[in-house]
């Protein structure tokens, strides 16, 4: 078994290797990890809560999993798509700066390869000096726009839709139970249940 210190050393080396040159990727991965950890914490809180009955837990835990899946998938897919597309724009030369383009001309790079997936400025023998910092900047901006779109627009819309559907299901379930028991108004569950569902996880 690998000793903990050696594992920590490997972890540091892996972070340095994977994110040292790619801040945009780091933001996407740590963002997704943040959603994952907050979801796990939320599920753990439900699982260890004594005030919640086992029957309720059997509903709430899968519900938290579903909520987590929506959050993580929408975040990862949207944010990484934005980032990857922006990255391709820069690496194929479609989005460039004057100094990068001048450097390409000096290396006799034909205009016909600009914007083609096979072409990658980062793989040229003499990568223009400005290329990496410019690409990092574009990637960070794109991943931030992507995360804003996913966290602040797409996820709330999806979650509200999901919550409304679940709320209807819960209300009808409560109604049928109450009809059987002939006791208590069903609508008292509506607000709290909606809040539980629509609130989602606390984004960390």
């Amino acid at each position: 078994m690998t000793p903990p210190l050696s594992m920590f050393g490997k972890f540091k080396a892996a972070l340095y290797k994977n994110y040292g040159e790619n801040p945009g990727t780091m933001l996407v991965h740590t963002g997704a990890l943040g959603w994952l950890l907050s979801s796990l914490a939320q599920i753990f809180a439900v699982a260890v809560n004594d005030k919640i009955s086992p029957e309720q837990k059997s509903f709430l835990i899968p519900q938290e999993f579903a909520d987590a899946a929506i959050n993580i998938l929408s975040f990862y897919i949207v944010t990484s798509s934005f980032k990857n597309f922006a990255s391709k724009l820069v690496s194929t030369g479609k989005l460039s700066t004057k100094s990068i383009r001048n450097a390409l001309q000096k290396q006799n790079v034909s205009n016909s390869v600009i914007g083609k997936l096979d072409f990658n400025i980062g793989k040229l023998k003499n990568t223009p000096k400005d290329y990496k910092p410019f690409k990092n900047g574009v990637e960070v901006i794109a991943s931030t726009i992507g995360s804003i779109a996913s966290c602040n627009i797409i996820t709330p819309l999806l979650r509200n839709e999901y919550a409304a559907v679940r709320q209807k299901e819960i209300v009808s379930k409560m109604r049928s139970q109450n009809e059987k028991k002939q006791a208590g108004p069903y609508y008292k569950y509506s607000m709290a249940d909606f809040q539980n569902l629509s609130g989602g996880n606390l984004k960390i």
């Binding site: 963002g31 410019f134 690409k135 990092n136 900047g137 960070v140 901006i141 931030t144 804003i148």
Partner: peptide, 18 residues
């Protein structure tokens, strides 16, 4: 400005933007 963001815009600033 773009290069500056790439170098300095870490996760704390992204959290504020979000």
């Amino acid at each position: 400005g773009i290069k500056y963001i790439g170098k300095n815009f870490s996760s704390d600033k992204q959290r504020v933007a979000l």
